[in-house]
Write a protein that binds this DNA or RNA. Structure first.
Length: 500
RNA sequence: GGGGCGUUAGCUCAGUGGUAGAGCAUUCGGCUUUUAACCGACUGGUCGAAGGUUCAAAUCCUUCACGCCCCA
């Protein structure tokens, strides 16, 4: 026994340890020679509708295994239920149909133990498909009691910290993570069918880039150098576009050294894709098609219901420029002064936003929008024309260089996606990096680093390209109707548990 | 960082100043078609931690830890 788990030892665990010790005395307590030939749900599908009489005539012999979730002992006969990855199946154990002594041993087994069994199918009086066991074996002794059978595991903290227990007990939780996997599989097939190439680029970078965010820092001992965990794969993916991979994507983790909340985890999963010879309008069309297909495929309906609100993904989404959004949610703002720095600074201050001396009118516009507009955008809405000042990697609009050809998609008051026509003018990019580096030097932790190699790559020529990022966790929240990002992360970030 | 709520048996939860409780689980006994099986008996607690108020604290106060929600 380690010191770590001594703390929560109790009489229930001690009892099970005694049972395990007894098992060890009678041979291998952890055998690995049982092989099943059937899964619970496959049996339900194949035989669930058969009559009892018919099943007995057929004499269907099956071998199953799983975790014992139900145990009802009635003297010389018992019912148990085993849970495997597909579901549950009931077994009937009768003393006189099992080898000598097996039934007596079984009575000592506990809910939570891993069991293998052989037998033939029949149906009980109430019509439940059941296996009449002729052999049962304890395959793994479980030392820790499971939560109470009816309420399951309710405690949020324990559900996150001991996800394995949550998964054993809560089908809804298992379902969320199966759906998460299906969502990602759908996105891959959607992109693969359009000839996108999936790639992997470094998590550890000497120069972090691709987003305005504070990075995590780490250190490589052998090389004695600091490294950063990536905040985005963007610059590497565009290097690949320069290299001729005209359609690339990556679904992987980003790391941002910021607060934790219902919508933020320090590491989160992002889809980023780049498509040469396309612009942000093409991406808007693509995002609409992706979400519609995803919803239809996963939910069987293009309408997603999230926390009591409905979003119809079969219709084109609303569109609004940043400036129109600001005016819509702040009717008192003077339209003619929407790019007036001093005016915006006053408005921002009135809204309680801390105004930085270095913030220009573009940055102030975004802060006002974040403060007043974002949460109000419930129905799917593309907000477009982001200020150049806050979009250092986006292509300027041909008619209005104050803004870029960029959008963000909001659903339910949350940012789900971000896309733009890429800035492929190396001299403009160099200028923007200089501004970012100056902001960083002035104390802005979220400003970008100057990435000289990225400029060099652009100097070889990045074709006209559009790029998109989609927050996978938030998308999974929407599709699975989960209120917190922690509900869609198997192991959400938590402060360490104290083992005394 | 600020505010609100929470932390009691392995689990789910009662208990707002006067002897720590229930159901499930465990243990023992009974029961050969159960469905949160049932019947009987028993067991199980540093009431998140530390300090304080009080004759007396799970309960009131302070600080801290962890979690949840909202705000920044």
């Amino acid at each position: 026994m380690s010191d770590d788990n001594k703390q929560d030892e109790n009489t229930l665990i001690a009892e099970r340890r005694r049972k395990l010790a007894a098992l060890r005395e009678h041979g291998n307590a952890f055998p690995n020679d049982f092989r099943r030939n059937s899964l619970a749900d496959e049996l339900q599908q194949s035989y669930g509708k058969h009559e009892d009489e018919h099943l007995r005539e057929e004499d269907v012999q099956v071998k199953v295994s799983g975790r014992m979730m139900v145990k009802r002992v009635m003297g010389k006969a018992s019912f148990i239920k085993l849970q495997d990855r597909t579901g549950q199946i009931q077994l009937r154990l009768e003393r006189d149909r099992l080898p000598e002594g097996v039934y007596q041993s079984f009575k000592k087994w506990d809910i939570g133990d891993i069991v293998g069994a052989t037998g033939s199918l029949f149906k009980t009086q109430t019509g439940e498909l059941t296996i009449m066991a002729t052999e049962v074996r304890l395959l793994t002794k479980s030392l820790r009691p499971l939560p109470e059978k009816f309420h399951g595991l309710q405690d949020q903290e324990t559900r996150y910290r001991r996800r394995y227990v949550d998964l054993i007990m809560n089908e809804e939780s298992r379902s969320v993570f199966r759906k998460r996997s299906e969502i990602i599989a759908y996105i891959r097939s959607f992109l693969d069918s359009q000839d996108y190439l999936e790639v992997e680029t470094p998590m550890m970078q000497t120069t972090p880039g691709g987003a305005l965010a504070r990075p995590f820092k780490t250190h490589h001992n052998a090389l004695d150098m600091d490294l950063f965990l990536r905040v985005a794969p963007e610059l590497n993916l565009k290097r690949l576009t320069v290299g001729g991979f005209e359609r690339v994507y990556e679904i992987n983790r980003n790391f941002r050294n910021e607060g934790v909340s219902t919508r933020h985890n320090p590491e989160f999963t992002m889809l980023e894709l780049y498509r040469a010879y396309a612009d942000y309008e093409d991406l808007i069309v693509m995002v609409e098609a992706l979400l519609k297909g995803l919803s239809q495929s996963l939910l069987g309906d293009p309408v997603v219901t999230y926390q009591g609100e409905s979003y119809d993904f079969s219709k084109p989404f609303d569109r609004l420029t940043v400036e129109d959004a600001i005016l819509k949610f702040n009717p008192k703002i003077d339209r003619t002064k929407i790019r007036d720095r001093d005016y915006l600074a006053r408005v921002a201050t009135e809204l309680g936003v801390k105004v930085d001396d270095s913030s220009g009118s573009g940055k102030l516009q975004i802060e006002i929008f974040d403060q007043t507009g974002e949460a109000e955008l419930r129905q799917p809405t593309f907000v477009t024309q982001y200020p150049t000042e806050v979009s250092p990697l986006s292509r300027r609009n041909d008619h209005d260089p104050f803004v870029t050809d960029r959008f963000e998609l909001f659903i339910g008051g949350r940012e789900i996606a971000n896309g733009f026509s890429e800035l492929n003018d190396p001299e403009d990019q160099e200028e923007r990096f200089r501004e970012q580096a100056a902001n960083k030097a002035a104390g802005d932790d979220e400003a970008m680093f100057f990435d000289a190699d990225y400029i060099r790559a652009l100097e070889y020529g990045l074709p006209p390209t559009a790029g998109l990022g989609v927050g996978i966790d938030r998308l999974v929240m929407l599709i699975t109707n989960s209120p917190s990002i922690r509900d869609v992360l198997l192991f959400p970030h938590m402060r360490p548990e104290i083992f005394e």
